[in-house]
Design a protein around this nucleic acid. Structure first.
Lengths: 236, 236
DNA sequence: GCAAAAGTGTTGTGTATACACCCATGG
DNA sequence: CCATGGGTGTATACACAACACTTTTGC
């Protein structure tokens, strides 16, 4: 079944900077980030208040950065937080308050730092209660949650939601919060141990009236995150 | 581990159209599509020649279309072909010939039409031989191939690379071409039958000196493609 | 009658799930 | 001594891979 001969001439009418065609109006490129953390038993999203409205951290890229670096910078500028993981989600074109924007959405994760969280607690919304956000922002968050849940299954990503060392129960709790369902303790432990991403530490944590729990850390192994992330993720 | 109080004020310096900040230079939003087909035993990519160079179909979005519709229109304008499937890949910011562009890349599929393929055969490059393309375009194609291969495994996507009806051998051949490896006939047939995505037709195809082969078609069932594709894929 | 592709089963191996009890500790 | 969470094993079902021969047809 060959693709046979018959040339259609038509391109170039929409070409970029070829001088012949007058320059078009350009959309605003608007990078928005869904920054997650887990705190107080909930999956939360950073939603700073800007001009009275809650919104996702957002901003424009600059020519001198790779796009992923722009996203990271925008997180920092909007929240004062440096995320621990960031990944692009999707790009879409919308109209919002008379602007034409191309929104490039990102998902980012930050560990619940015990020290200086840099963003008031009130500025974190539970992922299940997004009514305060614009429709576009809600859409982006919903999708980010889907992606985050999916990626828990086949990557190390939970790493970026936990402190340096943690117990297996901490890890399981994080999974359960993000997935919003209970997991079987024995199966969970077996799987996560078998996967080899954890290293047991010497220490144990003793708290409460029960056996002390072994602390683990994630192996810095070259990890499984490179699955559906493009090779260039982070060029200029 | 609560996220505690300490507000950092800093956003809004990078905000969009809030009049206070002078308008920044905006990048060109450049949509590029990797349009695949399978022909003559090869996975091929549409690379029309523009101004003497081979390049991926590309163009700018307009305010009145959803972004995915822009991509589809650009395919049509650049190749004369209406693709059968299209999906967004990734967005990145690059400098190419003095322009600052935000490239939004797409993967599209078109069935090898027996009738009027609308693009000269010479304008299709084998996916393994991309030397004629720019570095940025090669990067995009490489990634599209990765995604296409991955998606073969858990979606109906091969549907869009085959004619209406086809034999199991045709289907297997398409998989083998895209994946660039051989598959076991019995396992392949069992899996694909068990998945329930195929419907047997009445007809058989007789060609060559051997038994006639049963023709199948894909079930129009609501399909598995909705996995990692965001819910809004196709809004305004 | 022979070349060429269609079609067809079984077995082993690994992976995911369901499920319940004892142990160490602090108070 | 008791309440709390830490930690452990087994049986079953399912998915996947390896593997070879018979049948139908056109020439």
């Amino acid at each position: 079944m060959a693709v046979r001969t018959a040339t259609t001439k038509s391109p170039s009418s929409t070409r970029a900077g070829d001088g012949a065609t007058p320059p078009r109006a350009r959309p605003l490129v608007d990078v928005r980030i869904v920054l997650f953390t887990v705190s107080e038993g909930q999956l939360r999203v950073a939603c700073p208040v800007v001009a009275g409205d809650r919104e996702l951290p957002r901003g424009e890229p600059t020519p001198s950065e790779p796009l992923d670096a722009s996203a990271s910078r925008i997180v920092r500028e909007a929240t004062g937080i440096q995320e621990h993981y960031i990944e692009q989600l999707y790009t879409l074109s919308i109209h919002e308050s008379r602007d034409w924007s191309v929104i490039v959405s990102y998902m980012a994760l930050v560990r619940p730092e015990p020290t200086s969280p840099a963003l008031a607690e009130s500025q974190w919304l539970a992922a299940g209660d997004l009514a305060a956000l614009s429709a576009a922002d809600q859409m982006v968050v919903e999708y980010a949650v889907v992606r985050l849940r999916a990626k828990l299954g086949y990557t190390n990503i939970a790493f970026y939601l936990l402190p340096e060392t943690f117990t297996l129960s901490d890890l399981q709790e994080t999974y359960e919060i993000v997935l919003a369902r209970r997991l079987d303790k024995r199966n969970f432990r077996r799987r996560v141990i078998a996967s080899g991403i954890l290293a047991e530490t010497e220490e144990k944590r003793r708290e409460g009236s029960h056996s002390p729990a072994t602390l683990y850390r994630f192996r810095p192994t070259v990890d499984r995150e490179t699955y559906l992330t493009p090779p260039w993720a982070g060029s200029a």
